[in-house]
Amino acid sequence: MSAPLLEIDDLVVSFTTRRGRIQAVRGVTLQVHPGETLGVVGESGSGKSVTMQAVMGVVDSPGAVESGDIRWRGKSLLASAVEAEDLRGRDIVMVFQDAMTSLDPLFPIGTQIGEVLARHRGLKGPAARARILELLELVGIPNAAARLNYLPHQFSGGMRQRIMIAMALAADPSLLVADEPTTALDVTIQAQIVDLLIELRDRLGLAIVLVTHDLGLVAELCDRVAVMYAGRIVEVADVWSLFAAPAHPYTAGLLRATPAIGDLPERLDTIEGSPPDPSDLPAGCAFRLRCPRADATCVVEPPMSHPDTGRSVLCWHPEPPPVTTRPETAHV
């Protein structure tokens, strides 16, 4: 496999509050390779968005990276803020969840895309204008030339998300981080944005990190999946293995809670209990209080198994692989 674009190495992100320090991300290690699409899934509060915000250097105050490292093509983003600033918006870009509030309401969209070109490519004037039009056409904004001077509120939510994507692509990035890019949109618009992402990935050879809780979206888009729970990655696998044979009980629970079309059960399965309070995590495995497979061993933190094989799980008692039914050998 080629050298990874992005390496997150034992990253810890914590928020200092009056009640003490709360770790939202507790030692995440993850690689993203050129051209691949990685899904990062988990519940709200699992630390998936915070991990990616740390990559972009936009963790909400009072959060801060406590330890660990984030490297871009082998170079630490945490070591030099100035160098990291040059990479962000150029090589690594992010599209956020809420397109309605992601654009500055007072500046025309053309200006906001132009800022990226001026900052990272030194493009101004007619050359920048031509590139902005090209980008807006790429993401499917009709009649772009007439709308360069429109303000964000003059566009619908779906259009704004397209503009966000155009802005992200302005400086030819290698990695696009999409943080729940379709959550705030209508279902029909969601499908359009997903199609757009797939098209752009195939056309531009982008690597994508898709942060989501939508397993359907993961199945549709991703090559590899990392499942997060309570600030840790509990399972990493390629998308086929993960859906076919989830190893972590949490992943298995998530998949059971997701109905398949044509196979709607009377009642959806749920995962019992609720996510733990990050300021008061249980000792050992954070999932053990909700886990059907937990026993006394789980009070001790489990190790990450097979971290090198591409399939790894953070659990003492992973789910057994499903038994493929074969005709029984007849014993006489």
């Binding site: 250097g57 600033e85 040059d86 962000r88 918006g89 992601s102 990272h120 802005m167």
Partner: peptide, 9 residues
């Protein structure tokens, strides 16, 4: 939007 402009570098 401030988070977005910061992420733009």
């Amino acid at each position: 939007y401030i988070k977005v402009v910061r992420a733009k570098g």
